[in-house]
């Protein structure tokens, strides 16, 4: 029996999770929500995490009912992410490890998402689409590494959605992506947007500029003689609908190509954008056509959480990974394929 405790706080979510051999004992999370039109900035986010982290830890310990002596290892997010929030979490994790005299283990955030997704859905060796506010990657496992088949060449898909939410000033509570999804359900008219798949990679920044022009023509074209009347403006619902349809189609396309390349019959969607039901629906249609199976999780596990770090840490710890104290630092850049996979994913040919 191995119990691990995981701290996550690489972006605007702060979470603590406790897991025992794949059984979730506690999963507590808080989100730093900014006013409409504003994003979360590193300094303020770190401040939020500093305020909340100890309360969340206490709550997780109460919920899980584990005794401190039974916890085997303290895990935290080593990277990638914003430096100030990562550092806040690392400081708390290190102090806890020292006070309780437990080993410490830094976990790659992306690996956390993948392992969490595999645990919850029981997918064996899926092609993974990792979509969140900071990352967009298509990943498949091969030869002790999660290999990146395709990724964004500029901003992440979630960043594109978040920034569009700020442009049209919709609420960030519970998350901008969720609110866009709700508006998109009422959209009926499709406005064409650039479709930018570049081989296995994708790009979102051009789409964002284009949709900003459609949403705020006054701002985009100040010298325009003819004044645009409000009635002429596309509705927010239609814009959200058009944006989602376009970017999700791009994601489905590269995922399908990665599957064809690997001969894979499983798709796993992880990351915060992964709880978007329209994305799941579109991916499901593609999977059905290919006789593949789609795996996805709900917002408890899709969105950043402590459990994913605890579980990935569990996989690492039980297969012998240890970390020296002086290595318990953070790093903003930490690619998915930097991590040597020591646990069993699939039988390597």
């Amino acid at each position: 029996m191995v119990i691990t405790l995981g701290f996550e706080g690489s972006a605007n979510k702060i979470g603590v999770g406790i897991i025992r051999d794949g059984k979730v004992l506690a999963n507590v999370r808080k989100t730093y929500v900014t006013p409409p039109g504003f994003g979360f900035l590193p300094k303020e986010t770190a401040e939020h995490h500093r305020e909340k982290i100890l309360g969340i830890l206490k709550e997780a310990l109460e919920v899980s009912k584990v005794e401190i002596k039974d916890i085997d290892v303290i895990c935290y997010t080593k990277g990638p992410g914003m430096a100030p929030p990562l550092l806040t979490v690392a400081i708390a994790a290190r102090t806890i490890a020292q006070v309780w005299n437990k080993p410490i283990l830094g976990v790659n955030h992306c690996i956390g998402h993948i392992e969490m997704g595999r645990l919850i859905t029981k997918a064996k060796n899926p092609t993974v689409l990792y979509v969140s506010g900071g990352n967009t990657q298509v990943i498949a496992y091969s030869n002790r590494k999660y290999r990146i088949f395709g990724e964004t060449i500029d901003i992440a898909v979630g960043n594109c959605l978040d920034r569009f939410a700020r442009i049209i000033k919709i609420s960030n509570d519970p998350s901008p992506g969720y609110n866009i999804e709700q508006l998109a359900k009422k959209g009926t008219k499709y406005y064409p947007l650039p479709y930018s798949v570049k081989g296995m990679d994708i790009s979102f920044s051009g789409i964002l500029s284009e949709i900003e022009k459609k949403a705020l023509p006054h701002k985009a074209n100040k010298n325009r003689k003819k004044k645009v009347e409000d009635e002429e403006l596309p509705s927010h619902e239609d814009l959200c609908f058009s944006l989602q349809e376009t970017i999700f189609a791009m994601l489905v396309e590269i995922t399908e190509r990665a599957m064809a390349h690997c001969g894979s019959h499983e798709v796993l969607i992880v990351g915060g954008v992964g709880c978007n039901e329209r994305l799941q629906e579109m991916m499901g249609i593609m999977c059905k056509e290919r006789n593949a199976k789609l795996f996805a999780t709900d917002e408890r596990f899709c969105i950043d959480n402590g459990i994913m770090i605890a579980h990935a840490g569990w996989e690492m710890f039980t297969t012998g990974t240890r970390m020296k104290w002086d290595e318990a630092t953070i790093t903003q850049r930490y690619r998915t394929d930097d991590v040597e996979v020591t646990w069993d994913v699939a039988s390597d040919e």
Binding site: R50, I53, L54, L57, K58, I68, L87, T88, I91, A92, R94, T95, I96, A97, Q98, V99, W100, N101, K102, P103, I104, R322, M323, K324, W325
Partner: peptide
């Protein structure tokens, strides 16, 4: 960082051991 470290020690201490025994 110092304040967070001290608060953590205050709320979750005192330390369970006189020294840290891992790597």
């Amino acid at each position: 960082s110092l304040i967070l470290c001290v608060e953590t020690q205050d709320q979750f201490g005192p330390p369970l051991s006189e020294e840290y025994n891992y790597y």
